[in-house]
């Protein structure tokens, strides 16, 4: 209104949530798991930073990727890590992966009426030595899967993964079946392709890619050590091995 007033009474409502973009993804192999996320953090059309990690090491064999509202995500990871430390002090061992998964569901559901606006993907090695991925919705509903994408580019990446990991809509050659698990090199190529594709077509994805690889204790990392920009982050000799691979993504 020209007189500085409003036609309707103005009520500004504080919104405690925002969306910080980005995408995460995890794929389980027979004896390894790959958990990845881009490193861009944005709000609206602004890039806040080109490097804000979304993938976190929880234990020697568990990695958690969080995506959605960054403040909730960071606080949630902080609280999960705290619970895991308490567990360590009480039981003198790390919490197993399936127990971490249930812990996360309980912690998310505890906030059912003021949820963490976060999509979680937990990846790592199960007690039987198999690779595992657990995916969650913001209020704790979860399941174990072989692969999952979440976040801004979920709709771009997930159908690609259906095709390349689960071989959906593909027929095996006569007398053959599709492999249930892919070798690590194939999985890494698919992960990198997924993120370059998502970067190409989604404005909230880009800048950097951080890939965690967990390999079952005593199993071969299948030539992973010789890959470009790889860093081993294993803390002890008698555990599963953990690696981080960092790659650049387009910054536009």
């Amino acid at each position: 209104m020209p007189d500085g007033s409003f036609a309707h009474p103005q009520q500004r409502q504080f919104n405690p949530y925002t969306d910080n973009g980005g995408t995460i993804l995890a794929i389980a192999g027979a004896d390894f798991t790959v958990i990845a996320g881009d490193t861009r953090q944005s709000e609206g059309y602004s890039i806040q930073t080109r490097y804000a990690p979304k993938v976190f090491r929880l234990t020697d064999r568990a990695v958690l990727a969080v995506n959605g509202f960054a403040a909730d995500g960071n606080m949630f990871v902080k609280k999960v890590k705290q619970r895991l430390e308490w567990y360590r002090h009480a039981h003198a061992k790390d919490m197993p992966l399936r127990a971490i998964a249930r812990l996360i569901q309980t912690m998310l559901y505890a906030q059912r009426f003021f949820p963490y606006y976060v999509y979680n993907i937990l990846g790592g090695i199960e007690e039987d030595g198999t690779g595992a991925v657990y995916s969650f919705d913001p209020v704790g509903s979860y399941e174990r899967e072989a692969c999952r994408a979440a976040g801004a580019a979920q709709s771009l990446v997930q159908p690609f993964l259906d095709n390349q990991i689960y071989f959906k809509n593909q027929k095996a050659a006569a007398g053959q079946t599709h492999p249930t698990h892919l070798p690590l090199s194939d999985v890494l190529s698919i992960v990198i392709d997924s993120f370059t594709s998502a970067t190409e077509r989604h404005i909230e994805v880009g800048d950097g890619l951080e890939i965690f690889v967990v390999v079952t204790k005593g199993h071969s990392p299948q030539g992973l050590e010789s890959i470009r920009n790889v860093q081993e982050v294993t803390t002890r000799a008698d555990t599963d091995r953990m690696f981080v691979i960092r790659r650049e993504l387009k910054k536009d």
């Binding site: 580019a153 392709d193 997924s194």
Partner: peptide, 11 residues
Amino acid sequence: SSKLFGVAEGL
């Protein structure tokens, strides 16, 4: 369309 973009960009 968003799914088509994602898969097509990959394949």
